[in-house]
């Protein structure tokens, strides 16, 4: 039969690769059909944030006193926009991971069970979950790329961007995006589908506000317990990594520490996510 699917001379890896690419193609098709909601989703948060904090407030009388980190950022060079650029990119990356993996999984594991056909494709179960992470990472990179021009052009004071090492920047961006996908997988498989609405309050808000998004980690030094406490938050390493790669004039953690911790959280969350995924689809 000309259309026979599994030829005996196809190796396992060929069968798996084709299935993996098939899943990617399906996800791209679905995403492109919903491109407008996707763009709104990734652009709205940074757009409004930048507009209010780096454009509207500086124009107000005494606006700078309303922005608590302005003075600190100015001391390091650049305005609040310089602090916000990597922070908002980190939020975009993290949120894409949640929106691309955790939310769809909650639906697919819940009432509709529509993930079944994809789980039944000729791939090890873990690879189906890895595809989710990879596809989510691509969306995260795209989301981060959308934030960049917004954060560069909207602030009323110039944003100081300087990439000294493209390799470091790419490594941080890719690792951070994969980490966000793994976080989404872990949340999507561990949280009960009907409770998925709660994750905004219970997970997303705390890891964002305590993720060194709106202030650099070094600036927490007067509050030692908090500075040490936030180290368990993976978002901290995404923001600090982007800060080190893009806006090095603002103080940041050492490069090697950042990469090591990004890698550590990526592996940890991937293993947890894979386990949760297998628990959900196998009995």
């Amino acid at each position: 039969m000309s259309e026979a699917v599994v030829n005996s001379n196809d190796t396992k890896i060929v069968v798996y690769t084709r299935a993996f690419l098939g899943l990617m193609q399906r996800d791209f098709r679905v995403l492109t059909r919903e491109i407008v909601p996707f763009l709104i989703r990734i652009a709205m948060n940074p757009l409004l944030f930048l507009f209010v904090f780096t454009f509207v407030m500086p124009h107000m009388t005494g606006g700078s006193t309303l922005s608590p980190t302005a003075g600190m950022a100015a001391a390091g060079g650049g305005g609040f926009g310089t602090v916000l650029l990597p922070g908002l990119m980190a939020v975009a990356i993290m949120f894409s991971g949640i929106a691309a993996v955790a939310l769809p999984l909650a639906q697919e594991f819940g009432v509709t069970r529509e993930i079944d056909d994809r789980v039944m494709c000729p791939l090890p179960i873990g690879a189906v979950a890895i595809e989710k992470i990879v596809f989510s990472a691509i969306q995260s990179i795209f989301a981060a790329a959308v934030v960049f021009p917004l954060a560069y052009y909207i602030p009323s004071t110039p944003v100081l961007v300087h990439v000294s090492s493209w390799w470091f920047f790419i490594a941080v961006l890719v690792l951070a995006s994969l980490l966000a996908g793994a976080l989404g997988l872990t949340i999507g498989t561990f949280v009960q589908p009907k409770q998925i609405g709660l994750i905004f309050g219970v997970v997303i808000m705390p890891i964002t506000f305590l993720g060194c998004v709106y202030y650099p980690w070094a600036a927490l030094s007067p509050i030692k317990w908090l500075q040490n406490g936030v180290l368990i938050n993976p978002i901290v390493y995404i923001t600090e990594g982007l800060r080190a790669a893009l806006t090095p004039t603002v103080g940041h953690m050492p490069d090697a520490t950042i990469l090591a911790m990004l890698l550590f959280f990526f592996v940890l969350l991937t293993l947890m996510g894979l386990r949760g995924f297998a628990n959900r689809v196998l009995s």
Partner: peptide
């Protein structure tokens, strides 16, 4: 259509 089409793609067609 896509339900069947992508299923075929998963199986390497």
């Amino acid at each position: 259509f896509e339900n069947i089409y992508f299923h075929c793609r998963y199986f390497g067609m």
